[in-house]
C-alpha cells in the first residue's frame, strides 16, 4: 500500500513538468540527482574495496602491479589543481588508448570485414538475389553519402542521392521504433498512478492543477 503510494507520488512529481515547471518537479529532480550520486559513490567504493583493498591489504599482495593503477587513478584527481592538472592527462591517455585499441580490435572484424560479405546476387530463389542486390545498393549508397572527403559531384552525386533514400528507410524504421521505445517508459508507469492507492495521489494532482489554473486566470 505505502509502496504504491510513494511510487505514484514520485511519478506524479516528475510528470507534473508536462503541465509546467513547478516546485514538485524540481524537488523530484534534485532528489534523483542526490540519490544517483550516493549510488555512484557507494558502488564505486565497493569496486575499489574489492579490487584494491582485498588483494593488497587482505591478501597482503603489497607489491601488486595494481598499485600502479591506483597511483594512475589518483593522478586523475590532479585535474582539480591549477598547477598540476597536466598530470591527469597521463591516466586519461592510457585509459583512452586502451578503450580505442580494444574497440578497434573488435571493429575490424565485426564492423568492416564481416559486413563487406554480402550474399550472392545469383541465387536459385530470385527474391533472395533481388534482396541481396538491395542490401548491396543500400549499403554502398549510404556509405557513399558519408564520403565527405570528396565533393558530391559527378558520378558520386546520384549515388549519394540514392544514399539519402536508403537512409530515409533506415531512419523511418528507427523513428517508428524510437517512438515505441519512448512511450514504453510511460506505459509501464501508468498502472501505478491509475489504480488505488496511486489513484488518490492522482486525484490530488488533478485538483492542484485545477486550482493553479483558477489562480492563474484571476
Amino acid at each position: 500500500m505505502i509502496d504504491a503510494l510513494v511510487m505514484s507520488i514520485v511519478i506524479l512529481m516528475a510528470w507534473s513538468f508536462l503541465y509546467r515547471e513547478n516546485i514538485f518537479y524540481r524537488i523530484g529532480e534534485a532528489l534523483l540527482v542526490g540519490l544517483a550520486l550516493a549510488i555512484s559513490v557507494k558502488v564505486g567504493l565497493d569496486v575499489l574495496f574489492n579490487r584494491i583493498y582485498i588483494p593488497i591489504v587482505v591478501k597482503q599482495q603489497w607489491l601488486s602491479p595494481t598499485l600502479i593503477a591506483v597511483a594512475l587513478g589518483l593522478m586523475m584527481y590532479t585535474r582539480f589543481s591549477k598547477s598540476l592538472w597536466w598530470v591527469s592527462r597521463w591516466p586519461i591517455a592510457l585509459l583512452s588508448g586502451a578503450g580505442l585499441g580494444v574497440a578497434m580490435k573488435g571493429a575490424v572484424m565485426a564492423q568492416i570485414v564481416r559486413q563487406l560479405d554480402i550474399g550472392s546476387l545469383f541465387t536459385k530463389d530470385i527474391f533472395t538475389g533481388v534482396n541481396n542486390l538491395i542490401l548491396l545498393v543500400t549499403a554502398i549508397t549510404s556509405l557513399a553519402y558519408f564520403l565527405y572527403t570528396f565533393e558530391h559531384k559527378g558520378a558520386l552525386a546520384p549515388v549519394a542521392k540514392l544514399g539519402i533514400y536508403s537512409m530515409m528507410i533506415c531512419f523511418g524504421t528507427t523513428l517508428g521504433l524510437f517512438l515505441m521505445s519512448n512511450i514504453g517508459f510511460a506505459i509501464s508507469l501508468i498502472p501505478t498512478v491509475v489504480r488505488p492507492p496511486g489513484l488518490y495521489a492522482s486525484i490530488v494532482a488533478i485538483i492542484l492543477i485545477i486550482v493553479d489554473n483558477l489562480i492563474k486566470k484571476e
Binding site: M109, A110, Q111, C170
Partner: peptide, 21 residues
C-alpha cells in the same frame, strides 16, 4: 558483438526496440 561475437556461441541481446535496427 565486437568482443563476444564470432566465437560460435549464442549471443543474445535484450534492448530498446529503437536499438534493434
Amino acid at each position: 558483438p565486437r568482443q563476444l561475437g564470432g566465437y560460435g556461441k549464442p549471443l543474445i541481446i535484450n534492448t530498446l526496440i529503437a536499438t534493434v535496427p
